[in-house]
Amino acid sequence: MSYLELKQVTAFYGAIQALKQIDLTVEEGEIVTLIGSNGAGKSTTLKTISGLVPVKEGSVIYKGQDITSRKAHQTTKLGVAHVPEGRRIFPKLTVKENLQIGAFGVKDKKLIEERMEKVFSYFPRVKERLHQLGGTMSGGEQQMLAIGRALMMDPDLLMLDEPSMGLAPIIVEQIFHIIKELNDDGMTILLVEQNAFQALKVAHRGYVLQTGSIWRSGKGQTLLADPTITEAYLA
């Protein structure tokens, strides 16, 4: 049994079909990446898992539990964290409050403190900015805060939507380094990227999405070596 499994998932925005019978699995401890061009349905796939977009047909199974029709605030309580595209930091909350809201489901104050310290160990920069408003931080800092905020719920499955978007190459390196480190520490990761080269390098397996359908899938290295993929996404 897979850790996360999507079976024949379809999703619509009004009359527009965004996903067509998606089959996808993530095993415990893996980094799985989902690549594809703009509008392919990558973000929608993550949203059907977290519950922001309803699943029309098919099912989503997480740790053997059917979570197909759960609302977002219920899914996150099961340990599925979703770091949305564009980071979506709360601009008028302080950095500290952004972290606190990440642990909204947690009652134990001491546990919240502990997790915050753990976030600081991954992202020392976040600690320096604690009392600043989220909206005043740079793009890279916001991405680190967005990941840190997700770590506050101590997830088992971390879903990241284009974490490298719009960031300078050095920052992108750092972000990918952290993703690897989190995975080494035992976290299962589903990574959506347009930066296909970097993503396939770090991932165990990958899926290539094209206009709402899975076009290719396989080991990261295999996909990297596939000339049709190189041509379409790595040119």
């Binding site: 519950g51 922001l52 977002a72 605030h73 996150t76 309580k77 709360f90 809201i101 990440g102």
Partner: peptide, 16 residues
């Protein structure tokens, strides 16, 4: 305050 700023993201933080 979080909901006032961004409802979808607030719901991803387990906020009903």
């Amino acid at each position: 305050r979080a909901v006032a700023q961004d409802q979808d993201t607030a719901s991803l933080m387990s906020v009903n």
